[in-house]
Design a protein around this nucleic acid. Structure first.
Lengths: 135, 135
DNA sequence: ACATTTGCCTACTGTGTCAATAGGTTAAAT
DNA sequence: ATTTAACCTATTGACACAGTAGGCAAATGT
């Protein structure tokens, strides 16, 4: 289940992308347009800033700005960053302790294949694709 | 993220399938073999019983039994039953209130397609497949 | 009839995440 | 100096996860 964190993050990025690229967009504006609580969105955007997906500019006339072109962001990386992981099962998480049943587990291949499927899907959709309805 | 509920349920079903079909297998046995807390597994199996995926027989000589052949169970239905839903985002959940943004939501098609992908994957893998390493 | 085995049921607990909210501090522009 | 906006810390209520505890009901073998 993908939480609002990931979903709001995608919508925030899309909103930025849809605005004129040479303008810094205040959070309040996006929050209103997307109908998301400003305070809550703020928390999510902080993750995006830390992950260098967007740049925040303080002070009057400030706001947020993309650091790349819309077609250079994949949904996968946004989700991975905001959700913490895209792994479907705990044992496929990067920082998971090694499972003692790994060598005999008959379900592991299924999870692995599914994991590839998921990654393949989300890492091949860009913000630009979403905006242009190419998905 | 698929929780232990769904994962343990699959392993339980596989364990039953691997035992002689004309035998009722006590939970304690499976719990030991699969290294899962008996009490916790009990709770999960209750869901499987309620969903008619397995039959429980009380009393001495009792235990659990599959109600169909291993190749007639899909991983999808087991997960859907135990996890409550397989939907990736809240708005695709069956009993979700209608989203007011549905008609203008540019991400919805992406979620829908992903949902199909997930279903297509898990509803085409059977317990028999897992046992025979056909996945 | 009785003891034993096994499933079934209710209730509880600690930990963590989700989805927010609140209030204050720093940074930059006019 | 005032305003605007990002940034930071802390707290909250609700809920799910992962289990635990104890007892009741059903069926069997002796």
């Amino acid at each position: 289940m993908i939480s609002t964190k990931g979903r709001y993050a995608i919508r925030f990025m899309m909103d930025l992308a849809e605005q004129s690229q040479d303008r810094t967009v205040p959070l309040e504006e996006t929050a209103a347009r997307q109908d998301i609580s400003k305070k809550y969105l703020e928390m999510i955007v902080k993750i995006l800033v830390k992950g260098k997906l967007v740049k925040g500019i303080s002070g009057k006339g400030g706001g947020y700005r993309l650091t790349r072109k819309p077609e250079e962001y994949t949904v996968g990386e946004i989700l991975e960053l905001t959700e913490g992981t895209l792994a479907v099962v705990a044992c496929l998480n990067e920082d998971a302790e090694q499972c003692p049943r790994e060598s005999i587990c008959k379900t592991l291949p299924m999870w692995r294949k599914f994991d590839s499927l998921v990654r393949d899907y989300f890492f091949h959709i860009t913000i630009a694709d979403l905006i242009n309805g190419k998905v």
